[in-house]
Simulated scan of single mutants.
Amino acid sequence: MSEFDELQAAIRRHAHERQAEERACEAFLNALYHALRAASGPGLPLNNVTLDFTVDPANRLRPVPTGGFHAAWLRLGLCEVLVRVRRVGGAFQGEYGDGGSFRLEGAGEDELITLARQMLRGVADTYAGSGQERVRRLN
């Protein structure tokens, strides 16, 4: 078997796992979008939040290998924030904006609302000039 054939076989062998991970990451990004819309509290939805899935600019292979990042641009009113997420040991690990990062063991509503508010504060800090890197572990 040639190296090319070995590559094709490896890609096929892990296709199901890769696709399941991609679906999970996209579902997480979609849930984060909904959490951002609800971050102002019950009955106060943020209507100027949009989600646009995109190819992660740091990915150097397609399809994205298992453990790779999946990305989306989240428009938050006047700005857009690139959010990258991947699965690591069953948790969602990600990055957003200018140095923000997170790790969520669970993706329940409360965890996502907390992350959404953290993101909004982090992005506001960036534009306000405080630009402090916010690294928090949720859960």
Rank of each mutant, 00 (worst) to 15 (best):
E109F: 06
H34M: 12
D98G: 01
A15E: 14
E133H: 12
R62M: 10
G68A: 14
F92S: 01
A116Y: 09
G41P: 07
Q93R: 12
E17A: 15
L51E: 03
N48A: 12
R87Q: 11
C79I: 12
L104K: 06
G77P: 04
L51T: 01
R134Q: 13
A71C: 07
W73H: 13
R137K: 12
T66V: 15
E109K: 11
R62W: 12
L51N: 03
A124W: 06
A27S: 10
E26C: 04
D125H: 09
A31E: 09
A20V: 07
V123M: 13
I113T: 07
A24R: 07
R13L: 11
G41A: 04
N30H: 14
A15V: 01
G131L: 09
S101E: 10
F53V: 00
L61M: 11
E21Y: 03
R12F: 09
A116V: 01
R60V: 11
V85A: 11
E22W: 00
G131V: 03
G97C: 04
L32T: 01
L32R: 08
M1I: 07
N59H: 10
N30S: 14
T54N: 02
Q118L: 11
G129W: 05
R136Q: 12
G90W: 06
N47V: 05
D98F: 12
E6G: 06
L82W: 03
V135L: 09
D52K: 12
H14N: 14
E111L: 12
A39T: 01
G108Q: 04
G41F: 05
A38Q: 15
G99Y: 10
G100F: 09
T54C: 15
R75L: 03
G122V: 00
A31L: 06
T50W: 04
R121G: 03
Y127H: 14
G129Y: 06
A31N: 11
G106H: 14
A39R: 15
R86L: 09
G41Q: 07
V83F: 00
A9G: 02
L74T: 00
M1H: 09
Q118T: 10
F69H: 12
L61S: 08
A20W: 02
P57M: 03
D110K: 13
E26I: 00
N47T: 11
A58S: 13
L29Q: 01
A72D: 01
L29W: 01
E95F: 13
A128F: 07
L115Y: 03
L46T: 03
F92N: 00
E80N: 09
G99E: 06
L76H: 05
R117G: 02
Q93M: 08
V55N: 10
A15N: 10
R13V: 04
N59R: 11
T126A: 15
V55E: 12
A71F: 02
A35F: 06
V49I: 15
A72M: 03
A72H: 01
A35G: 03
T50H: 08
R136P: 01
A39W: 00
A39G: 05
L112H: 09
G41S: 06
N48C: 07
R13Q: 13
R62F: 10
R37N: 03
Y127P: 02
E111Q: 13
